[in-house]
Structure formats: C-alpha cells, structure tokens
C-alpha cells in the first residue's frame, strides 16, 4: 500500500493562505490503513486547525469530509458540495489524491496535508517499511522476493557492496517522528540525529537463495537496468485497449 505521514500542524497552517473556509478531505483507502489520512485523522486535523487558528487570533472555519478513494473521480463527486463551499482544501490523501482533487475541482486551491512516503507494508502495529519503488521491471524472481531497488541503499543489482556486516547495512536510517528527525546530544555535546539499523538487502537475498539452493541466480551478472520504464522515462502511463470504452484519437 501507499504510506504517508501527516505534515506538522504549523506547516499545514502556513499553507492555508488567506482561505477562511477550510475543508479537510480524508481518504478511506491506503492512508486510512496507515492511520495518516482517514476519516478519524481528518476529524482530528480539522479540530486541531480550528483550535490552533483560534488561539493564533486567526480563526478559520474548518470542516471535514472523507471519501472512499480520492484517486477516483466518482468518489470525488460525492463531496462536490462541501468542496464548492470551501476556500481551500487540505487533502489528507497521498500525492495521487491531492492531484486528483486539484484536477477534479480546477477552481479550488488544494494543499497536501501529508507527505507521501513510500510503497510498503505494515511490519508490525505502528511500523511500516518500504518494499517497492515501482521501477517498472520487476526482478524479484532473481532475488528471492527481496527487492534491492527499494531495499539496498545503493540499488545494487549484483550483490552486496563492502558496507555489509553482520547482516546490517552501514547506512543507517535517521529516526523520524512525523517526518522530523529525532535528535540527541552526543558525547561532545553536539546535536545529532538518532540513527537506526537497516538490514542489508543483499544479506537477506543471499540467505534466502541459499535456503532454496538457488545461489546460481546471483552469480549471473545482471546488465545495466533499463530505467526508461521507471520514472526516468518521464511520467508513466498504462493503456489497456481491451478495457477502454472509447478510442483515443
């Protein structure tokens, strides 16, 4: 699924501009499952914006609505009335939903309330990890179902670099809460971000292929990747003629 994290309240407030009537629109799909932008989060954000702008002496009228999926036109029609009454829309969907709202309601100013983070899975309650980068040419059959494009810090295709030790990558992850690095003071009194261990994807791949007696798969030299089917080829598009209702000119 697509995961997201809500932007800090102050940042969202800063994006409201002059809009007096604010509509927070939640999305009932991915961002509901990751507790970032569903109905409950839309209600809480609306209440927070009401209280906070009032305390700032700049009170806004904030309401909320949630649709099943912000990335499909037919669901957006269901909030047409609320949208038309608002000056500014805070979309709590992923980046797809924000853009769908802006296109569907072209005369409305739409701002994002989330940072869309990645395509991932819930590791455990409250923890999500990135699994896929939608690179357009899946190689998981070669790597035992573990993706080095999404999970190796250097996107290596031919095995681990020299920075793999005891199953861990030498590159650490900056611990973040709501997207903001968590800081600590080190022994020299300097503020440093808290770092977390990351598994070496190639150690995971190695262990899994070894278990299946398929290490020969990674002895083959993988050629340079065709990035043109990834984002590097420009914005991508899928056309399925068999599913289309009308022919394109």
């Amino acid at each position: 699924m697509i995961t997201g994290e809500q932007k800090p309240l102050d940042e969202i407030k800063g994006l409201l501009g002059d809009g007096k009537k604010v509509l927070v629109v939640g999305c009932g799909t991915c961002v509901t499952v990751c507790f970032a932008g569903g109905e409950k989060e839309a209600q809480i954000l609306a209440a927070s914006l009401r209280m906070s702008t009032k305390l700032d002496g700049d009170a806004r009228e904030v309401t909320d609505a949630t649709v099943q999926r912000q990335c499909e036109w037919e669901y957006l029609d269901l909030v047409e009335k609320e949208v038309q009454e608002a000056d500014v829309i805070v979309s709590l969907a992923c980046g797809i939903g924000v853009q769908a709202m802006a296109r569907h309601f072209p005369d409305k100013w739409v701002i994002p309330g989330l940072n869309t983070t990645f395509l991932g899975l819930p590791e455990e309650q409250g923890v999500w990890t990135e699994q896929c980068q939608a690179c357009g040419n899946c190689i998981l059959a070669l790597t035992g179902g573990i993706c080095p494009i999404a999970r190796c810090s250097k996107q290596l295709l031919n095995g681990p670099c020299g920075g793999s030790e005891n199953g861990l990558c030498e590159v650490k992850r900056i611990k973040r809460e709501n997207g903001i690095p968590v800081m600590q003071t080190d022994a020299r009194g300097r503020e440093q971000p808290v770092l977390e261990d990351v598994e070496c994807a190639w150690q995971l791949i190695y262990d899994r292929l070894k278990g299946f007696d398929k290490l020969d798969l990674i002895m083959e030299i993988q050629p340079p990747k065709d990035w043109s089917v990834s984002r590097d080829g420009g914005p991508r598009r899928i056309v399925r003629e068999d599913l289309r209702l009308i022919d394109e000119e």
Binding site: G159, P160, S164, E165, Q203, Y206, D207, L215, I221
Partner: peptide, 13 residues
C-alpha cells in the same frame, strides 16, 4: 565484509 562466505564469488563475478 558480509556475507563473508560469498565474497570469493563476488570476486569471481
């Protein structure tokens, strides 16, 4: 570096 047992094979590649 890890996995140590695979390092000669990485060299072979």
């Amino acid at each position: 570096a890890g996995p140590v047992e695979w390092r000669p094979y990485r060299l072979a590649k």
